[in-house]
Each structure stands twice: as C-alpha cells, then as structure tokens.
Design a protein around this nucleic acid. Sequence first.
DNA 1: CGCAATATTGACCGACCGGTCAGTCAGTGC
DNA 2: GCACTGACTGACCGGTCGGTCAATATTGCG
Lengths: 212, 212
Amino acid sequence: MPLVEPIPNLSETGPDAVERILAAAKDLFAESGFNAVSMNAIAEHAGVSKANVFHHFKSKNALYLEVLKTACSESGSQIDQLGSGSGTLVERLRDFSQSHLANILRDEKISRLIQRDLLENGPQRGKEFAEQVFGQNFARLVEILRTGQKKDELRKGIDPAMLATLLIGADVFFFQSREVLRHFPDVSFTDTPESYSAMLVDILLRGILPQP
Amino acid sequence: MPLVEPIPNLSETGPDAVERILAAAKDLFAESGFNAVSMNAIAEHAGVSKANVFHHFKSKNALYLEVLKTACSESGSQIDQLGSGSGTLVERLRDFSQSHLANILRDEKISRLIQRDLLENGPQRGKEFAEQVFGQNFARLVEILRTGQKKDELRKGIDPAMLATLLIGADVFFFQSREVLRHFPDVSFTDTPESYSAMLVDILLRGILPQP
DNA sequence: CGCAATATTGACCGACCGGTCAGTCAGTGC
DNA sequence: GCACTGACTGACCGGTCGGTCAATATTGCG
C-alpha cells in the first residue's frame, strides 16, 4: 500500500524515474533507516517496479550510497556561505549560530539520514564523514575563531576547536532532542530555534556568572 | 556463526537463561539496532535455542522493550547521586559535568541503545522518555540552577533550563560524535573527556570574551 | 518412586527479503 | 521493413525472518 502515489504522470513529462527512486529512497531511508526499508517499498513509493530499481541501481547498498552522496553534497553546499560575512566576531558568531541551526532544521530528512548513517556505520563512517563532508567547514570555523582570538576578540584561554564543537554540538543536540525537550515543563524554547540560538550565544559570550 | 560463545558453562551454574538472553539482546540491539538483529542471532549469542527465547519472551518486541526497560532503570539510577553534593554552585557544576559525561561513557551500550530507540521511534517515544526516564533528573538539575540563581551564584539573565540543556547536550554530543571529531586535526580532546568537561565548564563560567 | 509443571529443543510455517531473469515495449537509425 | 537499444515488467529464486508446535529433558514436590 503505497502511502504516496507516484504523481499521476498525466501524459509523459514527470520527474525522471531515477530521480523519483532517489527521492523515495531518501524519504524512506531517512524515516526508518536502511534495514527497515525494503526495495519493494521504495519501488512502490517511486511508482516503478522493483526490478526497475535494480535496473538503475545495482544493489540496495549502491542505491543507499547514492542517496547519501546526494544528501551530503546538499548539506555541504548549504553551509558554504557561512563565516564569510563581515563585521565583528560577535556578530559573525550570532549569524553562524542562527543560520547553522536553521540549515539543520530546513532539510530535516538529510539531517536524520546522516545521523542514522553515523550511528549504524560506526567509526569507519565517522572518519569518512570527518574527512569528506564536515572537515572543511569545521576547519574554516576554527580558523575564523583563531583569527578572532589573535585580534583579541576572543579570550586567550579558549580552545577554538572546543568552541567550534560547542557551537555545532548545541545545534545538533537541539535538533535531535527537540521531541524529548519539548516535554520538560521548564523548557520554553523548543518551538523557537532562534531564541535557543540567541540564548546559546549570550551564554557563550558573557558566561553564566554574575557580572560586577 | 556466533561471534561470542555462550560462556562454556562448565557444568551447570551459569547465569540464568533469561539473563543471558537479556544480556545478549542488549549487546546486539545496542550494536546494530532492532531491525538488524534476528532472534536467531540473539539465541545463539545467549547459547539457547530460538524457540526458548520465545518461551521466555512472547515476541521480539516484548524482548526489546524488556531490554530497554532494564537499560533505562540502570541509566536512571546512575544519575541519581548527582547534584546532591555540597559546595558552591561552581564546584557542583564541575562535578556534575564530569560525572555526567563519565556516566554516559561508562555504559556505552546503554547510551547507544537509548539513542537508537529515540531515533527510530520518533516523537511518541520522545515523550515517554521525557516523562518516565529523564524528566526527574532534568527537573532536579534545573531546580539546582534556579536556586543558585536566587542566591546570586548565577547571572540573572540566564534561563536555567537552557543552561541545563547545554550542560547535558554538550556531553551527549561529545559521546555520539567522538568518532567524527577524532579526525579533525584541530581537535585534541576526544581521548580525554575530563579535559573536554573542564573546558566546557570554563567557557560556561567565564564566557569567551576577553576579560578586562 | 510417580507425576505434573516447567525448561528446552529441532522441525517447521508463511511472509517477506534482496536480487535475477526472460521477455515486452517504445524509440531510433538504416 | 528490420535490427538494435535501454527502460521497464511480472514471475520467480534461495534465503532469512518472526513465530509456532509437538516432543523431549529437567526439575521439584507428594
């Protein structure tokens, strides 16, 4: 029972079958993970026969890798423009935090897909992601922070890589824990990522101690 | 091909079959997730027949839920003693951050199991975890922070729930991203969670801006 | 001891899995 | 007309899945 019909395809020009398969696979893999999705389900979702899926992709794993590759390139290009803005380091940090979280939330499917893949494929995949997907952006962020530190916009004792980890980690944790946090009565920010981001940067900048 | 033999069982007194099944299931579920683990694999790992597993647990799902229940109660009791220490808020924060991260890392299997379950069972499970597993501890941490805030040990503008989220999130992110972070040349703390924790608290306390 | 309850087993089931295959069909160049 | 090609399909394969069942081994109790 296909939950989504393959676009009625009124006469002829619909999305290419390959694209429909990739889109269906992306949705289903992100939703339920590699093992829980059958090639039959993908085929039905895409409105083609299972055999046709195998005609275009030599195996389930090959299809999965193709989906992952696409997702990663999208994910990478989204973050590209970050950190290139001008202004003080403080302004740039605010911008980065806001747009980074927005990017994660924008295509939830991609985020889930990558999260799932990292969880299921262990250290080896972790290395691949570090080197091929996130490495550049992380290094750039660290470099920006280091430069700011030299210009005395950042405290000397701070490890730039630690700060970068914290900035990214806070957003990632927000993304994947929203559905838990939402049910804590003390928590008020799950529906407004902007306010989460603002509070995060505020804490990072000024610290949590009372100021004389 | 069982990767781990069921304990030679020299004559008779080994762990009860039910316990062996639970232990095997916990290991395998944590390692590969619900769908990727077969009842046959669990049975072999536990050194019993598959039918015997079904004799003690009415279904795969019931076994899984039992494993999850056990894992959650262990996870809960571990965190129990936190925050009950004495001393200034700063000292207690340092203690909390250190031991919280240590707890997460101690039984990696449980952490992975819960992480996997939250990812695969969506918002509904998120609510259950929030209410039945993490709710109390989170509320207690928030309460400690709020009290400290009233005694002026914490800046007024800080949202205690936000700070609690940040404390916990930083540790969780560290746990699940170690294998990625490890491969960033700028990162130096992946093998020393204590130094990560120390840097985290330092940043939170003093902020990242230069101090006059 | 006998005997019932429980623990454990191998054989088995239908459903579904990823993947294959022979073949249909529309389009294209000659 | 004909040969060829790539997209596409339904039927099918061996294998594994979660789950069942009748039969056997083990235990505990009168």
